[in-house]
């Protein structure tokens, strides 16, 4: 469904991602793990069109999306739920959800989707008229996820969805992500919490200093001695 071939991205002279190649198949949940600054976030930004790659090719559903605008890529069906939640702090919960459906014209369906999401996350319904900046971290994360779903994506990318959240909320967030996959949406997840990410994912890629070093099913990587030593603290 998504193929990244030889992706290279730079910030100034520093290469953040070097010749990265990976593939995500329809319906999969794929995790990218690696240390801080390994290039995971940059990879997601390149896929969603926020960062222009200097080399390599991005293919989505058979189309070349290398260098396409974020708007175009979203329209093709890739949503990006960014690191740090990034809800619009001075907009209400409802307005944030409306931003998620900014490109959609099917008003009736949008309204139905919004009602569905508010049913699924009753806390968001309760807080619908509050500005998003007044929500707790966990509520903001749920809002960010719901906002990403408002575009009706075929592929959704989560960047550090558990970052800075209380352990009980973290479980909730991972549950939600699993449900999204179960509903037929393909998922890419970048996660610091390597243990949880590997348990949850079908397959995973390990990225170190902008390069791909290991790949395999989540279960295999959990048993891999290198992964254990570097990311699982065992």
């Amino acid at each position: 469904m998504l193929r990244v071939e030889g992706l290279t991205c730079r910030y100034g002279k520093v290469a953040a991602v070097s010749e990265l190649t990976l593939e995500v198949r329809q319906g999969e949940l794929v995790a990218l793990i690696g240390a801080n600054g390994a290039g995971k976030t940059t990879t997601l930004k390149a896929i969603s069109g926020l960062v222009a790659p200097v080399a390599g090719r991005l293919m989505f559903s058979g189309r070349d999306i290398t260098g396409a605008s974020a708007r175009h890529i979203l329209r093709l069906g890739i949503a990006h739920c960014p690191e740090g939640r990034r809800v619009f702090p001075y907009m209400t919960v409802l307005e944030n959800l409306q931003m998620g459906s900014h490109l959609r014209r099917d008003r009736r369906q949008v309204a139905a989707d919004m009602a569905g999401l508010l049913d699924r996350f009753p806390i968001l319904r309760e807080r619908r008229a509050q500005t998003a900046g007044t929500l707790s971290g966990g509520e903001q994360q749920l809002l960010a996820i719901a906002r990403a779903l408002m575009s009706r994506p075929k592929l959704v990318m989560f960047d550090e969805p558990s970052l800075g959240l209380a352990p009980t909320i973290v479980d909730r967030v991972f549950d939600v992500i699993k449900t999204i996959q179960a509903a037929g949406v393909t998922v890419i997840m970048v996660e610091q919490n390597a243990f949880a990410a590997l348990e949850l994912s079908d397959r995973a890629y390990v990225i170190e200093q902008g390069r791909l070093t290991l790949t395999g099913t989540g279960r295999d990587l959990l048993e891999n001695p290198r992964v254990k030593a570097a990311y699982l603290g065992a």
Binding site: L50, A70, R71, R86, F88, Y90, E95, M99, H102, S151
Partner: peptide, 23 residues
Amino acid sequence: TRIGRAMRATFQDGDTARLMGVD
């Protein structure tokens, strides 16, 4: 309005506004 919402989103967080498809 929709364009007004896009303006506010751009003001509050430009990159995230782009991720929402704001031109």
